Amino acid sequence: MLTATTPAPPVPAAQRRGRGARRRRQDAAGYIFLSPWLLGLLGITAIPMLISLYLSFTDYSPLGSLSDATWVGLDNYRRMFTTDPSYWHAVRVTVEFAVIAVPLKLAAALAVALLLNRTFRGIAWFRGLFYLPSLLGGSVALAIVWRSMFNREGAFNSLLSLFGIHGQPWVNDPNFALETLMLLAIWQFGAPMVIFLAGLKQVPTELYEAASVDGAGAWRKFRNITLPMLSPVIFFNLVLETIHGFQGFTAAFVVSGGTGGPVDATLMYTLDLYVKGFTELDMGYASAMAWVFLVVVGLVTVVLFSTGRFWVHYSDSEAK
C-alpha cells in the first residue's frame, strides 16, 4: 500500500531571519574568544615569518629599518652553501648532537619508566624526582650550574678525585665540550619518561600473563610485547625529541659564553644563527639560515612519519 508523504511546512521568513541572526552572533562570539590566539598567531608568528622570508633575500642590519634592506636575491643562500665554513661546521655539530643525544635520552627515559612502572610505597615521590630536571629544561640557571660542575674545579672532578682520577676542564676541552651538552640533554629525560610511563599503563596485563604461561622471560616479554605496544609512544617521543635536539641553543650559548667554543666545538646551528644575526648584525643572512633550518627540520619530520608505518603498531592494526 503506497502512502504519500506530507511535505514539511515552510519555515516562516521571520524565523529564518532569527536563526541567521543567532548563528551570526554565535560566530562573532567564537571569533571574539579566539581573537587573543589569532592576534598572537599573526603578530608573533605569521607576520614575523613573512618578514624574515623577505629579509633572507636582502642585506639587512637589525640596527636599521626595513626600508634600508638591500635586495641581493639568492646571494645569502649561495654564500651559506659555498663560502661560509662555519655554516657546515655548525651543521655537523648539530647533527652529531641530535644523532647521539636523542636516542640515548629516549633509552634512558624508557629504562627509568620501566623501573617506575611498579606499585610500592613512595613511588609517586620517585617519579616526581626523576621528572624534576625536565622542569628546569632550557633554563639559563641550569646551564650555568652545569658549566660550573664540569669546569676544572667543579663537582665532577671532585668526585673523580675520590677515586684518584685527575680531571680536566671538560667544558673548555674541544674534545669533550659537546659531550657535556649531550649529557645535560640526556639527564633531562623526565618529559619522555612520563609519556613512556603513561604508555606502559595502557599495555594489557593479560598479555604478560599469557606470555608467562608460555614460559617467556623478561627480555622476550619486553621485545615481543612492550616494544610493539609502546611503538606509537616511542614514535611520538622520537619526533618531539628530534626536533628539540636540532633546536638546542640555551645550553650551548651559556656553556660557550655565546661563542660556540672552545674552538667552535659547541657551535650549534641555532647558536651560529644567533651570532650571525645579533653579533655580526647580518640579519639577512641569519634569516636565510633560519628558513633553511625550518625546511630541513620539516623534511626530517616527514621522513620520520614516512618510516613510521614500517615499525609503529597500533592496537587496531591500522596505520594512522
Rank of each mutant, 00 (worst) to 15 (best):
A177L: 05
V297K: 09
L294T: 13
P204C: 13
R78V: 14
P48H: 09
F57K: 07
Y274G: 06
A108Y: 00
P85E: 11
V254F: 01
A29F: 10
F310M: 07
K320G: 02
N117S: 11
A155K: 09
T301P: 00
F196N: 01
P62E: 15
L53W: 03
F189M: 13
L197S: 08
W219K: 01
G308L: 03
Q168C: 00
L53E: 09
L116T: 08
V72K: 08
R79P: 00
P12K: 12
F196Q: 03
S56W: 03
R121W: 09
A21P: 00
F293H: 06
M49Y: 05
L294F: 15
L104F: 12
Y77S: 09
S158E: 12
G261P: 06
G260I: 09
F163D: 02
K276I: 04
G167R: 04
G122L: 05
F278H: 02
D75F: 00
I144Q: 12
S134C: 08
R22C: 02
V11S: 13
W219T: 07
A124E: 10
N117H: 15
Y54L: 12
P232S: 03
M193P: 01
K320P: 10
T307I: 08
G18E: 14
G138D: 11
V213M: 14
M229V: 08
Q26E: 11
T301H: 05
K105S: 01
T3S: 13
V303D: 03
G190N: 02
E206Q: 14
M149N: 03
V102M: 02
I186Y: 04
A28Q: 09
G261R: 06
